[in-house]
Computed example of a mutant assay.
Amino acid sequence: MLKKNLLALFAATVLAACTTSPTGRSQLMVMPDAQIDQMGLQTFSAMKTEKAISRNPQFNKLAHCVASAITQQMGGKWEVVVFDDAAVNAFALPGNKIGVYTGLIKLVNGNQDQLAAVIGHEVGHVLAKHSNERASEQMLAKQGMALAQQTSWGQSPQVLGLLGLGAQYGILLPFSRTHESEADVIGQELMAKSGFDPRQSITLWEKMAQASQGQQPAEIMSTHPSDATRIGNLQQHMPQALAYYEQAQAAGKRPHCR
């Protein structure tokens, strides 16, 4: 009886947590947004303490200008910090925080549109609440394994091992690749609506592919789509992005962040 009640509670939790992403994709979220935002704020605060912050005026001006144009599409106050780090990276966290690494700014060589492609992508993760979805997936995966252990067949070490593998490669990583592809589309639309040329998103990821020098895990074992998949996805959505770009240009949205 207890097992049936646990299963019913688990099923009810899953059904109650269903929501829809900005692209219309079904999502499962059980974590309170306020808790996820607080986690983002704590993480960002720790990074500002632990990592060197760039004082390069040109890098900071470019990053703040691009991020400001992108985030105007959502409103709210966003904090932007340029970290003095050679890694080709940027991120956005719940709680309206954006971090840009100097390695990325050097890679794009000051190109505002290419930097907008990355910042738009990272902000896309926040808009789609991917952090909440990922945390919820992990929580539900753990609950599922705990329920399996309540059954006789679930006591087998072999079965538990397969459940763990399935939770990683059958649930968590595929969702993560979905998150990345979804953030690409959202980011491409954001940059276009902000007046940045969405065609530069293709150039950006081509640069990323060259920078990786082929050192990339197989897509099925990776949390990121392959470069070819990513570029193909962006090309597929380019007509709509270009339409947004033309509308933005006509409305006078012409960022000058170079």
Score class of each variant (00 low, 15 high):
residue 105 I to L: 12
residue 68 S to E: 14
residue 162 L to P: 00
residue 35 Q to S: 01
residue 106 K to P: 00
residue 146 A to C: 03
residue 71 T to I: 03
residue 30 V to M: 14
residue 141 A to V: 14
residue 81 V to P: 12
residue 39 M to H: 01
residue 5 N to D: 07
residue 8 A to V: 03
residue 162 L to N: 11
residue 219 E to H: 13
residue 220 I to Y: 08
residue 204 L to Y: 08
residue 254 R to H: 13
residue 74 M to N: 08
residue 194 S to R: 06
residue 28 L to G: 03
residue 135 A to L: 02
residue 32 P to N: 13
residue 136 S to P: 02
residue 257 C to I: 11
residue 222 S to P: 07
residue 231 I to L: 02
residue 34 A to G: 11
residue 248 A to S: 14
residue 104 L to V: 04
residue 117 A to W: 01
residue 229 T to I: 00
residue 112 Q to S: 10
residue 25 R to D: 07
residue 195 G to M: 12
residue 81 V to S: 11
residue 170 G to H: 06
residue 148 A to K: 09
residue 136 S to T: 05
residue 106 K to R: 15
residue 72 Q to K: 15
residue 114 Q to M: 15
residue 7 L to M: 08
residue 30 V to G: 15
residue 68 S to A: 15
residue 238 M to I: 11
residue 147 L to E: 08
residue 10 F to G: 01
residue 10 F to H: 12
residue 253 K to N: 11
residue 119 I to N: 02
residue 221 M to K: 12
residue 159 V to I: 15
residue 37 D to I: 00
residue 104 L to F: 01
residue 214 G to T: 04
residue 122 E to Q: 03
residue 215 Q to H: 11
residue 88 V to H: 04
residue 222 S to Y: 07
residue 62 L to E: 04
residue 254 R to M: 12
residue 105 I to K: 02
residue 105 I to Y: 01
residue 140 L to Y: 14
residue 194 S to Q: 05
residue 236 Q to T: 14
residue 242 L to D: 15
residue 205 W to Y: 07
residue 219 E to Y: 10
residue 83 F to T: 10
residue 241 A to P: 10
residue 159 V to S: 12
residue 179 H to D: 06
residue 203 T to Y: 06
residue 131 S to P: 01
